[in-house]
Design a protein around this nucleic acid. Structure first.
Length: 654
RNA sequence: GGACCGGUAGCUCAGCUGGAUAGAGCAGCUGCCUUCUAAGCAGCAGGUCAUUGGUUCGAAUCCAAUCCGGUUCACCA
């Protein structure tokens, strides 16, 4: 039995127990003020004896002894004062390798194996909002949204696991010029087509009209652009004419022509101005004004088409297993923020220029001046976001507010937080931009104009199909009903996709090759799912009664290496979840789940002299059988929970 | 030009709050189904951790400079 002392440590995880013990030892041995955080503890390298290693180099300045001597003193102290925790030690150079009592691991196993929600911490009374997904309603979801959705969902689940109350929020960009483009194209070219009449999913139908708009726009812009390049500026007048003239002249300057990048930039600007001059673009702008003025016809069309899109999005969300607690719509929030600006002016944080526009000066913080209200009193993106930040806080009073948004908006969020801090908004300090890298194709970014955008629904369908093909190829469909197979393929296909997008550190950009389908072998979701299913298959060898009477065995023989290794790994789960939350990175869990599955697979297959030495069913005695059953159950539960926090389901058989 | 991010095996990535001989997966090569599920296991091969300098007992990890790639610096969202 463990001492009361050791039991206290037991609840904190063994690494923390070791750190505390080591810090206490340093204080006692060398009369130094030393905290547990100053102790560096690593997992012992496999070539040395022991489970955890304390690095002692930094203690030598207190001990005034060689690292080896210091390690020996510390080891002896720990062994003498914590006999319930340590059973032995050895010192190699400055590394103190500690051997942990088997009883410690067994104790963890006994308590944890029956816990179906292992990893889940009790409520901590703190609240966090995670805003993610945030789609535009003019196009269907694509690969980039998938990374965003999976990331947001997973981080929210990780916070929940650590005891937070979480509000998953979705701020839908449901208004603006881009939606008017789809609407206008529908009016002009659809002949009244609807999702019902065409059989096309609503978000895709609306997206098709957006593409149609862009095509017409391109056709109309082309002659204007060539006229400008020829020096004919008849399409422009007034200030615009001056501007385009300047740009046109610039294209002939030798220094611009020599700098390809600069030339491309000037030409892009000419194109953009020309596109604005097209008839169809003018119409779209008129429609936007009508929308803002509340024109009933425009509003009705807008509501109808957005309705189609939501229907489509909801199908996709449902299939992905993504959900939200709170929806925000930009059509309701885009006017917010003006009162914040008024208050800012009164406080003297903001200032007004001659043309009546309102700005904040951030040059002291190494940034620029930032516009918050145009001269005509209308607001910009930033103003809206300021207002929405306050709205969210008024709604929930959360301590933390995460925004899952791609890293191209790093500057925006830096400025957003800074302005809120200067305005002394209570929400300011809790704002965190969970910035993630773009998903790129082998040849660079996805570009809608080049038609290289990977559609989310297509990709899901393809992955599920791949899962079906592989399952059939392996001849693993026996004993499943049609319905069960469909469900299995969803689980595997989505598992592969989610794991693929979550296994990489969020802040790094990543590459997706649409030519190769996502792998189902190696460091993948299906590998881990398979490992889980195999454990379940082992457990099916036993009756429910067998599985329920596992405690109370006497354990006299020492734990074998891989038995111990698996329990140790499982014991690290809580620490992993904390790290994943601190880093806001599901990748931490992905790596852990893979390691755990891989370790169990080795355990399962380990053979000596033709015998499976870790066999559960054919264990050498009843006690070992019970022990290994507990290990199998604990491992399965830990794998299942790990994947759950990544939004990935596990199959009982595959 | 300023700011920020990245550069680790052929490819995709871990490791980065300094610790022992830098790890996985894929691709390549060799073995293992008389097994509780081979979507697996065991092994071989593969490295100037972009470069240079510094900090120290110790640097892929921290600092500086340089090179390469990306993002951003709109009265767009």
């Amino acid at each position: 039995m463990l001492s009361k002392f050791a039991l206290t440590f037991f609840r904190m995880s063994v690494v923390i127990a070791i750190k505390n013990a080591a810090a206490t030892a340093i204080q006692a041995l060398y009369q130094q003020n030393f905290t547990a955080d100053d102790v560096s503890v690593n997992i012992t390298k496999p070539e040395f004896e022991g489970e955890y290693t304390v690095v002692v180099f930094s203690f030598t300045k207190f001990s005034r002894l060689k690292p080896e001597e210091t390690g020996k003193q510390l080891g002896e102290y720990l062994l003498a004062h914590y006999p319930a925790l340590f059973t032995g030690f050895n010192v190699v150079k400055g590394f103190l390798n500690l051997q942990i009592q088997d009883q410690y691991w067994i104790q963890y196993l006994q308590t944890a194996h029956s816990n179906k929600t292992v990893g889940q911490q009790p409520a901590n009374g703190r609240k966090v909002m995670v805003e993610y997904s945030s789609p535009n309603t003019n196009k269907p979801l694509h690969l980039g949204h998938l990374r965003n959705n999976f990331l947001g969902y997973s981080v929210a689940e990780i916070y929940k696991a650590n005891g937070f109350e979480v509000i998953k929020a979705n701020l839908v960009n449901d208004r603006g010029i881009h939606i008017c483009k789809s609407m206008l194209a529908w009016q002009m070219f659809s002949h009244g087509e609807t999702p019902q009449s065409s059989g096309i999913k609503g978000d895709h139908l609306v997206g098709d009209f957006y593409v149609h708009f862009e095509k017409v726009l391109r056709d109309q812009a082309e002659p204007i652009i060539s006229r400008v390049l020829d020096g004919n500026l008849k399409d422009f007048e007034g200030a615009e004419k001056d501007k385009i003239e300047k740009l046109h002249n610039a294209t002939h300057k030798p220094e611009v022509q020599a700098d390809k990048e600069k030339l491309a930039k000037v030409q892009d600007e000419i194109k953009e101005l020309s596109r604005n001059k097209t008839e169809i673009m003018q119409q779209a702008k008129i429609m936007l004004q009508q929308w803002e003025a509340g024109n009933p016809e425009v509003r009705a069309l807008w509501a109808t088409m957005n309705g189609w899109v939501y229907e489509g999005f909801n199908k996709t969300y449902q299939r992905l297993g993504i959900d939200f607690d709170k929806m925000y719509y930009e059509s309701n929030t885009y006017l917010l923020g003006k009162d914040l600006v008024e208050e800012g002016l009164r406080k003297g944080v903001l200032f007004r220029k001659e043309d009546n526009s309102v700005w904040i000066d951030l040059t002291a913080d190494g940034l620029d001046e930032k516009l918050l209200l145009r001269g005509d009193g209308t607001s910009v993106y930033m103003t809206q976001d300021l207002g929405t930040a306050r709205l969210k806080y008024d709604d929930y009073h959360m301590e933390e507010s995460l925004y899952v948004v791609a890293d191209e908006q790093n500057y925006h969020f830096k400025v957003l937080k800074l302005i809120l801090q200067k305005l002394q908004e209570p929400c300011a300090d809790g704002i965190y931009h969970l910035s993630y890298g773009m998903v790129e194709l082998p040849h660079g970014r996805m570009k809608s104009r080049e038609g290289t955008v990977v559609d989310a629904d297509d990709l899901i369908e393809e992955m599920v199909k791949t899962a079906a093909e592989q399952t059939e190829e392996l001849g693993k469909t026996k004993g499943f009903s049609e319905e069960e197979l469909r469900e299995l393929y969803e689980t595997i296909g989505l598992g592969a996709m989610k794991f693929f997008l979550l296994k990489v550190d969020p802040k790094k950009k990543m590459v997706f090759n649409p030519e190769e389908s996502i792998d189902l072998h190696g460091f993948t979701g299906p590998f881990i799912q398979y490992s889980y299913a195999r454990i379940k298959s082992i457990l099916r060898e036993f009756s429910t009664a067998d599985l329920e009477e596992l405690t109370g065995y006497s354990h006299n023989t020492a734990l074998l290496p891989m038995e111990k290794e698996l329990i140790m790994l499982c014991e690290q789960f809580n620490a992993i979840l904390l790290e994943a939350q601190r880093e806001m990175s599901p990748a931490v869990i992905a790596n852990y789940a893979f390691l755990l599955a891989q370790t169990f697979n080795s355990f399962y297959a380990k053979k000596e002299e033709g015998k499976y030495i870790y066999s559960v069913r054919d264990a050498e005695n009843e006690d070992k059988k019970k022990l290994r059953l507990q290990i199998a159950i604990l491992t399965a539960n830990t794998i299942k929970q790990s994947l759950k926090f990544m939004g990935i389901a596990v199959p009982e058989r595959m």
